[in-house]
Amino acid sequence: MTELTLVQAINRGLQQAMHDDADVVMLGEDIGLNGGVFRATDGLQKEFGAERVIDTPLSETGIVGTAVGMALYGLKPVPEIQFQDFIYPAFDQIVSEVAKFRYRSGGQYPCHLVIRSPYGGGVKGGLYHSQSAEAYFAHTAGLKVVIPSTPADAKGLLLSSIYDEDPVLFFEPKRIYRAVSGEVPDGDHRVPLGVAKVVREGTDLSLFAYGAMVHPALQAAETLASDGPSVEVVDLRTLSPLDEKAVLASVEKTGRAVIVHEAPRFCGYGAELAALFAEKALFSLKAPVARVTGYDTPFPYALEHLYLPNAARIVAAVRTTMAAG
């Protein structure tokens, strides 16, 4: 075990995979010599060479398209998109190619790669360095979507993603790259994909969150602990495929659900969870499902503190839900 920040844990995960498997290659903007703008790939080009840690020209579609070719040939590419806000030029490659290669080839061409990208607000990044675009990708058949919230999960989920057989979009909560640290197992530590985690047990209400939002959710549960309801917090960890069993089990136990994400509300990931509860857990529900999310606006710069869900807003939603039934 080693105490690491989340971004250090990512770095150790990448180093472990590159050390263990010569097929693992990385490509992206400023990832080599500069070690990535967040230093996630720091030192890796020096250790593994410029043929495996490739500084690319500034083209996201080029990065992902090239990685697809490498994956088809049999490598395990881990392309980096510098900010998730800049992933859209590669959207065609991801949605039309990465997601569909296995299917459209009748299983002949799996297209396994891991697209890493920092996402989310809270870093004074404005419209184009703050977005949470996970829903676009969770909506696309053929992709897996993974978002860690702790250093140990970051390393473990990343290594599982690299050795998975399917393409994975691995979104890293940049707001807590350095704000969160914790004990991380050494070596080839794996955390299985598709498995949610109850990070705090409770009996009265379930909070569902992922990535950076797990932390204000935990804070809210803690705030309420002394005099309020007993709140369970479920960290989804994998958005696609969703661990349906685990989230339904939690709702069936507590009878109340509040979903937290920083992406806009309309057609956000929370809508899928709310629909799932309506379809499969309606008769366990004692109160309407609530969502605490970003607003249906572009991500604001000066007012990001008002846009982002925080513990106080989550506490308020919990109280309202408790009062409703």
């Binding site: 080029g62 398209g65 090239t66 070719g69 088809l72 040939y73 490598l75």
Partner: peptide, 12 residues
């Protein structure tokens, strides 16, 4: 889209 794939495969 396939043009980038060919470049990636060549590099691989």
């Amino acid at each position: 889209t396939q043009i980038s794939h060919a470049v990636g495969a060549a590099m691989a």
